[in-house]
Design a protein around this nucleic acid. Structure first.
Length: 283
DNA sequence: ATCGGCACCTGATTGC
DNA sequence: TGCAATCAGGTGCCGA
């Protein structure tokens, strides 16, 4: 599941149901799901055994469970990862299972296995403790310490397309292909424009739009087109009904009525309104 | 510093 | 009906 709102939905579910629990058994069904844990599957299982979860964290699209020994179980959902509590409807893509001391099972299910689990120590970055593999990830727009104006200044110095920068997790994190398009539409900016060519107020407006759209999505349980994107109880969010641009090629712009377009952009689909978000003359 | 491309995967959908 | 091409909410690494 992908972007910040969907990951935060999962984190909240884990925080409510897993905090305070102790892991009593671990089974790694697919080694690729733990490939980023360099010490290997056996080491990951050994370190989780008898570990007690003390809390949860998230930055951008990374989430983690803090453990009583001071380490953290870091989870990235990739394109299709799920963290499920209780029965797994389809075990075809079950990659890791952890039994908890209340008898429930926490499962990592991931069709494509781009995501995975790893265990890491916490490091302090800019006054905040995060797992070491997350140290390079910038604060996200829903972080209370997110410094919008600092990011605006960073963007002013980027001679690069603004959509590429919105997707760069070291500049601002949590934004993916859907919410980038939604934020660009709300701020009336074409994603092919150079970040350095946008004014400070416009960049601020764009970052604010990203924060608002992701907050709205979170309030509706995230965006879900299908059963691939679900919370810890297997339920879908319904923000897809509120999307203004993503997936609306050929449909009228909700602001001006022009026909929405889809283009290949950075090897992925980008949706935009040709009237509200005119393409730059020179790109 | 920035880019375009590709690799990592599986499955659903589209088109001939 | 069959089969190939295309597409999917991400990330990271490569050479240019």
């Amino acid at each position: 599941m992908p972007e910040l709102p969907e990951v935060e939905v999962v984190r909240r579910g884990l925080n409510e149901h897993v905090t305070g629990k102790t892991i009593t058994a671990v089974r790694v069904h697919h080694p690729r799901a733990v490939r980023r844990h360099e010490a290997g599957p056996a080491d990951l299982a050994a370190r989780l055994l008898d570990a007690t979860v003390t809390g949860t964290g998230r930055r951008g699209k990374y989430l983690w469970l803090t453990l009583a020994d001071g380490g953290a179980l870091v989870v990235h959902l990739g394109m299709s990862g799920q963290m499920l509590l209780g029965p797994v409807p389809n075990e075809n893509h079950l990659r890791i299972a952890a039994l908890l001391d209340d008898g429930t099972t926490l499962s990592f299910v991931d069709q494509r296995t781009f995501g995975g689990w790893l265990i890491a120590d916490l490091v302090t970055v800019d006054g905040t403790d995060v797992p070491a593999p997350v140290a390079h990830i910038a604060r996200d727009p829903l972080d209370p310490q997110f410094d919008r104006d600092r990011v605006v200044n960073v963007l002013r110095g980027k001679h690069s397309e603004i959509k590429r920068q919105l997707l760069d997790q070291t500049v601002v994190s949590g934004i993916g292909n859907i919410y980038a398009d939604e934020a660009l539409w709300r701020a009336k900016v074409n994603g092919a424009r150079l970040a350095s060519g946008l004014s400070r107020p416009k960049l601020a407006e764009l970052l604010d739009a990203a924060a608002v759209v992701m907050t709205d999505a979170l309030g509706q349980g995230g965006t879900s087109f299908d059963s691939l994107y679900v919370n810890v109880n297997g339920e879908s969010g319904y923000f897809d009904r509120s999307l203004d641009v993503y997936g609306r090629e050929g449909e009228p712009c909700r602001r001006c009525g022009a026909v929405m377009r889809r283009e290949k952009f950075m090897n992925r689909s980008s949706f935009y309104c040709p009237r509200c978000q005119p393409r730059p003359r020179v790109r």
